[in-house]
Design a protein around this nucleic acid. Structure first.
Lengths: 157, 157
DNA sequence: AGCATATCGGACCGGAGCGGTCCTGTAAAT
DNA sequence: ATTTACAGGACCGCTCCGGTCCGATATGCT
C-alpha cells in the first residue's frame, strides 16, 4: 500500500495543531492531555507520539508540574520527511536501501541502484514539504480543530 | 518506514528479468519455474507474484503445457506505480487518501488536503519511472527524475 | 520537606497483515 | 488420456503496528 503508519499520521495532526497554536502567539508548552483533547486522540497514544518527536528535536519537552511540549523549531523548518523518520525510522522503500548487509546478493543485484534513486526522489519530495505548508491558508483556525477520529478505535467517550 | 512490501520488491526483480530476456529477443513465454531459478526466489512466491501481475495486464499468461508468462507491454510502457498498485493495492499514504468513507470527520479535517497533495507527488514520481529505466545500464532517466523539481507539490503559501 | 503533576523510558499485549506454502480446478499440447 | 502449467483459492506462522500501562524522574507548589 506504500503507506505511512497511523502513528505518523496522528503525529502530523498533532504537529499541525502545535503550529496553529504557535501562530496564535500561544508559545507556552502544552501538555499531552491538552493535545489529546484537542485532537480527540487517546491520551496514551498522544503521549507515545510526542515522546518520539522529542527524541528528534522536533519538539522540546518540559518535565514536571506545568510541564509539556512545544515546537523545537519554526514550522517552516520542520520537514515532513523528518517527522516520518522520527516516528517510523529511516525512509527506505526496500531493506537494502537502509544500509548494507540486508541482502546476501546485494553485490550482484541489478535493481538495487535504481531503487536507491527512486528512494531519493521520494525522500526529496517529502523534504520539500514543511509543517508550515500544512497549516497555511484557512484562517479562523481556532474554531476548526484538526480532529480526526481513528476509524479503528471506537470512540471511547 | 514508508516501505513497499517484499513481494513488490521481488516483483520488480522478476519484471526486470523479463525485460532483459525481451531485450535479447527471447520473447517467448517463460514459466514460473524458470523465473524462480533465474532469480533464486522460491517457486510458490514467484507463482503468486506473477499471478498478481497478470490481473493488471502487466504480464500476459499462457496456460497449459508450454505455457508461461510474458510482458504484456513494452518495458517503456510499464510504470513502477502500476507494479506497486498491482501487488499491494492503491498507493495511498493514509487511509483517507484511498477514497471517501475512511474517516468520519474527513469533512472538517485540516490535514487531509495536504496529504492528498503529498500523495499525488509521490505517485507522480513513481509514474515517471518505467521498467525500461531500471534495465538500462545508464539510468539517465532516473538521474533526471531525482533532479527534477516536482511541481506536483504546489506551495500553497 | 513533601506532595502533586507531567514527562521519560520501557515492557507488554492483541490483532492485522505480510511472507510463504499448498491444494484443487482448468486449459493447452502431445 | 496424460502431462504440463497457470488460476484461484485457503491456510498459517510470524512480525510489526496500534494501543495500554507502569515505574522512575524532574519540576512546581505549599
Amino acid at each position: 500500500m506504500l503507506r505511512i503508519s497511523k502513528l505518523t499520521d496522528y503525529g502530523i495532526v498533532l504537529l499541525t495543531h502545535f503550529a496553529e497554536l504557535s501562530a496564535l502567539g500561544e508559545d507556552e508548552t502544552h501538555n499531552a492531555r491538552q493535545m489529546a483533547e484537542a485532537t480527540s486522540l487517546p491520551l496514551p497514544v498522544v503521549s507515545k507520539i510526542l515522546k518520539g518527536l522529542v527524541q528528534e528535536r522536533i519538539l522540546v519537552s518540559q518535565r514536571g508540574s506545568k510541564g509539556g511540549y512545544a515546537l523545537g523549531r519554526r514550522p517552516e523548518e520542520i520537514r515532513i520527511s523528518e517527522v516520518i523518520a522520527a516516528l517510523e525510522g529511516p525512509i527506505a522503500m526496500v531493506e537494502c536501501s537502509a544500509g548494507p548487509g540486508h541482502c546476501d546478493v546485494e553485490a550482484s543485484c541489478r535493481v538495487r541502484d535504481p531503487w536507491q534513486r527512486i528512494n531519493r526522489a521520494i525522500q526529496e519530495t517529502l523534504e520539500r514539504v514543511t509543517l508550515a505548508d500544512l497549516v497555511s491558508g484557512a484562517p479562523g483556525a481556532l474554531v476548526q480543530i484538526a480532529a480526526r477520529q481513528p476509524d479503528a478505535v471506537p470512540a471511547d467517550r
